[in-house]
Design a protein around this nucleic acid. Structure first.
Length: 428
RNA sequence: GGAGAGGUGGCUGAGUGGUCGAAAGCGCCGGUUUGCUAAAUCGGUGACCGGUUCACGCUGGUCCGCAGGUUCGAAUCCUGUCCUCUCCGCCA
């Protein structure tokens, strides 16, 4: 959520920001309603004050009849107040709906425009390989080496589910180990989070459970939902808390399964492991002071790059354009890995992303820190970034590491955990 | 699944109808003392939304899990609801 006062004082730039992000918001209407609310609030407070004065005077009343008279007076004042309050509630609900639909403000450097306007700001150190043989996509490779059972997954849970098998299982665990070790070295506290969370938590982080277009699976008869990312649980962990300024920044990483309905995504590059209903992800999350968040954003993005540099996978980093940012993000960097089997002759596909949400989530989650110098409290900034989304990482590894002889090499950094250097035997 | 207890300020925890935005302790901030630190001691210290002021500040309202109700008046009484804890049972 944006600060209401900020919106009132910056209505023009807020409107411009909404327009650039492609979100329909009637800022002038909000300003008008919010202003009216404040007027009403004044009237209500005045009535409340008068009623309080009357109540306090009752003890000092001279006799019974005066007492009764003041009781009646107090009753009347509170009735007037209640009527005004009802009026205000109605108006505030409308203003609140507009308020909640406002996306976060945007970093001045974010490119303006839609998906196509995102700007490449970095390339990985590993070059895109040129293959001297017909390239297979990961689905064919997986089938050839018995690594993923899509049919089995579909039979027991439906399309979009799968069994990982054999070396794919080892790859999944190896990727978790690899990511976790690097993150721990960088000062992240490792966690394994719940895979379910209350609706309240999802909403705080910015997800909408149980809507018509929801991406979230909900549990029947319980106020619980399967998380779409550990961002939900890690962000929710500090909801309603006060953090000591000296404890900032707090850096957490969490392993969770991620569940997504992918409603409306049918047919959209949905083959194989790219878009699935369940996968494992190692997520980074940070709480910082406002002045620390830009640097933290960069450092989270750098870590994502290092993880992919280490895997020796080619990738590029995009500074995401305004129209493609999503609600809470102030700025977002996506990391796209080269996927040789995608499209006709290979395409980049999103593998991780890093967002700086400034105080947008913190305001809704009510996460503050106590300032040392000045009096009072301030909202923290929150940031999140994917360390490794396992299913897409496996996809990228299989396709990039395939060999002319049909085998698939294991990235060097993963070999200790996989226990071998190659999937499939070398035919000679 | 059965039985109990409880949700109060940054934390612990008093408080059963007006004198309570709330004791006390901890923590935090400032002063004094000590060679530094620690200790001691004195003082200050809740949040949110407004009004007013160049500013220090002054001032109104709201807030004791949440939502309703009773009352002139609710942290306190009533109803509902959510959550947490303890014990027993079951279970990986």
């Amino acid at each position: 959520m944006l600060d209401k006062k900020f919106v009132l004082e910056n209505d023009v730039s807020v409107q411009q920001n909404c327009d650039r992000r492609g979100v329909k918001v009637d800022v002038p209407r909000f300003v008008q309603q919010e202003t009216a609310c404040r007027g009403l609030q004044q009237e209500i407070e005045d009535l409340a004050r008068q009623a309080n004065v009357v109540s306090k005077s009752i003890g000092k009343a001279a006799d019974e009849s005066q007492r009764e008279q003041r009781k009646a007076e107090g009753r009347q004042l509170r009735e007037q107040k209640d009527a005004k309050q009802a009026e205000l509630d109605k108006l505030a609900a409308e203003a609140g709906a507009i308020h909640r639909s406002m996306p976060n403000m945007t970093h001045p450097k974010s490119p303006i425009g839609d998906e196509a306007d995102s700007v490449e700001i970095h390339k990985g150190i590993t070059d895109v390989r040129s293959f001297q043989f017909p390239v297979l996509d990961h689905v064919d490779l997986a089938q050839q080496h018995d690594l993923v059972d899509f049919e089995g997954g579909a039979r027991i849970a439906g399309n979009g589910f799968y069994f990982l098998k054999n070396e794919a299982v080892m790859l999944e665990l190896a990727l978790q180990q690899y990511a976790l070790h690097m993150l721990i070295d960088e000062g992240f506290t490792p966690t394994i989070t719940p895979d379910l969370a209350r609706s309240e938590v999802l909403q705080g982080v910015g997800y909408i459970p149980r809507g018509p277009e929801t991406q979230i699976y909900s549990i029947e008869n319980f106020d619980l939902n399967l998380v779409a990312t550990a961002e939900i649980t890690l962000g929710g962990l500090y909801a309603g808390q006060f953090i000591e300024e000296d404890d900032l920044p707090i850096k957490l990483c969490g392993i969770s399964h991620c569940y997504r309905t992918e409603a409306g995504a049918a047919g959209r590059a949905s083959r194989g492991l790219y878009r699935v209903h369940q996968f494992t992800k190692v997520e980074m999350f940070a709480f910082t002071r406002p002045d620390q968040s830009d640097a933290m954003h960069k450092s989270i993005c750098d870590l994502e790059c290092r993880l992919f540099d280490g895997l020796e996978l080619p990738y590029r980093v995009l500074d995401i354009a305004t129209g493609d940012l999503g609600g809470p993000a102030y700025r977002k960097f996506d990391l796209e890995s080269w996927m040789p089997g995608r499209g006709k002759s290979g395409e980049y596909g999103e593998v991780t992303s890093a967002s700086n949400c400034t105080d947008f989530q913190a305001r809704r989650l009510n996460i503050r820190y106590k300032t040392k110098g000045e009096k009072g409290t301030r909202y923290v900034h929150t940031l999140n970034g994917t360390a490794i989304a396992i299913s897409r990482a496996i996809l990228a590894i299989l396709e990039n590491y395939q060999q002319a002889d049909g085998s698939i090499l294991i990235p060097k950094v993963l070999q200790p955990w996989v226990g071998k250097d190659r999937i499939g035997s070398v035919e000679s």
